[in-house]
């Protein structure tokens, strides 16, 4: 089980590294799908199959598809890739990498100070999650619904006004 965890964790870390290093947006998003899938494997290993399914369906499915739609709608092309390569000089990585490494070293050293404790002994399935979600956390579910409504209204408001003058030019772009 530990072997599976280490393989999945390695895949997740390497694909995430490729996401933040890649200059082509579509390729980076495809690597992000692999990263999310590896995290889903880890969720399954820990005994949380419901969350693993949600990770694949919503993160690797819906959210990445939304990103891909926007990247393809903006139609950036090879010019943007060249510009990304020009922006990503090696010396730009020095400062953020040092800061991130300091943060990581501090938290990991704090975490590994005591003896390791076991986790994921028993599986917590969808039945228990659903019972708690619509029992104790019912108010939070309604608040989440309000948040989604706010997101919907905000997104539609931001897209609304420019649609009228842009509609002619948009149809010309289609083959």
């Amino acid at each position: 089980m530990n072997t599976v965890f280490f393989i999945a964790a390695g895949v997740a870390v390497i694909s995430t590294l490729l996401v933040i290093c890649h200059s082509n947006a579509v390729h980076a998003l495809l690597y992000l799908i692999i990263s999310f899938s590896a995290v889903a494997v880890i969720f399954y290993l820990m005994g949380a199959p419901f969350v693993a399914a949600l990770e694949v369906i919503i993160y690797a499915g819906a959210i990445i598809v939304l990103f891909l739609f926007v990247v393809m709608m903006l139609n950036l092309g090879p010019v943007a890739t060249a510009q990304e390569k020009a922006w990503l000089q090696p010396r730009m990585w020095i400062g953020p990498s040092i800061l991130g490494a300091i943060l990581l070293a501090l938290t990991v050293s704090l975490l590994w100070r005591g003896a390791p404790t076991a986790a994921g002994g028993a599986e917590v399935g969808p039945r228990q999650v659903g019972a708690a979600l619509f029992g104790v956390y019912l108010l939070a579910v309604q608040l989440a619904a309000l948040l989604m409504l706010a997101g919907l209204v905000g997104a539609s408001h931001l897209r609304r006004r420019e649609l009228l003058p842009e509609s002619e030019t948009k149809t010309e772009l289609l083959p």
């Binding site: 965890f5 933040i20 953020p96 990581l104 975490l111 986790a119 994921g120």
Partner: peptide
């Protein structure tokens, strides 16, 4: 069982990568 520290360490590594 899987030690909790493994999962939390992976979460921190991913978080640091996202921050960078």
């Amino acid at each position: 069982t899987l030690p909790m520290e493994y999962g939390l360490t992976l979460a921190m590594v991913l978080f640091a990568l996202g921050l960078v």
